[in-house]
Design a protein around this nucleic acid. Structure first.
Lengths: 230, 230
DNA sequence: GAATTTATGACATGATGGTGACATTGCAAT
DNA sequence: ATTGCAATGTCACCATCATGTCATAAATTC
């Protein structure tokens, strides 16, 4: 089994260190973020297998972060474990509403956290998100965050990766620029529609040498489409 | 794209003016209401594309208004953006519970409001109902925005596509040029009736190689018809 | 054959998408 | 701090495409 990646969103360095130690000893790779903003940056770069979020965070609270993650298509399936303060019943209710998979009450032992992580990972179907997708030689593997064509790896930016990922999981269908912004960039981002063009261009440039750019098709007046047919 | 109408429910004239200016500059039409009652009157007259409601209103509060709108079938699908006071966490929770689509914390910049409005409008575009339609080998698939005959893709302009789409969903019936203009071009477009002829011609040219142009029939003195029969 | 209606080719104009360049930002290495 | 770098969003410019209109040819009706 490949090494699982855990994203820890926690502002206290002491807890970060403790959890980090426990996770690495348990064979997990850990990515850290000090607040919700940083968490989004990390998520855009590479999707972890699970997120551990502290309830109390500077700026956007952990619960808001969790809600946002569940709302975005790209991160909706991501399991979340929340760290809550002792005995805050309200927290639990809120957390469950936000679609959190499990929560741990502070103070907790590293051992318990690891156990819960394993339990959540076990029950969440890893296939759904991380199975590689192949279209006519072009393979995208979400778990290793890699795109290959004929064994050759392709280099691209995070946004292009997410764009291609979305396309390959939703082929043979036109998406307007607006829809792509919603579903690839996220609902709370406000960027120009034409920005989509530029990223389509960048994606095509990467795919061009292998000829796979033929899958990324312009539908004039409607948007873009990922299709195997000409 | 047609001009979108925004209903602003806000009691403070200063904010009304500011928002009004920002909206008109962004190409929106704005309708104003000072309280919940007035809002209902405006809604009865004409349904806007989106409602912006202040949390604090004289009489019925904004949150109650939002709840009411979501409860009524006529307005249930209407996107709502709520203006909340600074940092009132309770507001956010209540707003989300009431089915509000987004909320902005005062003070806000007009620019941000416009951005949010656009984002909400973007996401609330209903998924176009889209089952592929086939008539004797000729298939039109709205979701992939593609026309094929015997697996072979046909290329055509957006207007021809819409025209064919309309025809295939309304077969065996004659439509006059003005009816076609209304239903394919839109109610408030002003083009020559003869223009229809030209697009019929263009559509036929695309369909001709496969012989499918036989479906597009001229009914002299009446208009055009899409029919499987000769 | 004259009148009416439709088909068709050509064309100006506007809309749309592709593309290179650039400013900005955040991060990593120095 | 400073520098370098990669990613990203925005813009301006250009090529191409789509559209509406017209003039004229062809077809149909009387």
């Amino acid at each position: 089994m490949s090494e699982k990646t855990i994203l820890l969103v926690e502002d206290e360095p002491a807890i970060r260190e403790m959890v980090g130690f426990a996770l690495s000893r348990a064979g997990f790779r850990m990515v850290e973020a000090g607040d919700a903003n940083e968490a989004h940056t990390r998520l855009a770069e590479r999707l972890p297998d699970l997120v551990v979020v502290d309830w109390m965070l500077p700026g956007t609270s952990g619960i808001d972060l969790a809600r946002r993650l569940k709302r975005e298509e790209y991160t909706a399936e991501l399991p979340i474990i929340m760290l809550t303060a002792r005995g805050e019943e309200d927290d639990k209710v809120g957390a469950l509403e936000a679609g959190v998979d499990d929560y741990i009450t502070k103070p907790f032992s590293p051992r318990e956290l690891v156990a819960r992580i394993k339990a959540v990972l076990r029950r969440s179907i890893p296939e759904e998100q991380s199975r590689p997708i192949t279209v006519d030689g072009l393979t995208l593997d979400p778990s290793s965050h890699r795109v290959t064509v004929g064994g050759e790896a392709l280099e691209m930016g995070p946004t292009e990766f997410r764009l291609l990922h979305f396309f390959m999981t939703h082929p043979e269908r036109v998406y307007s620029r607006s829809q792509l912004l919603d579903r690839v960039w996220g609902r709370n981002t406000y960027v120009e529609e034409r920005t989509v063009d530029v990223h389509i261009l960048r994606l095509r440039k990467v795919l061009a040498p292998s000829g796979c750019d033929r899958f990324v098709q312009t539908v004039r007046g409607a948007g873009y489409r990922f299709s195997q047919q000409t």
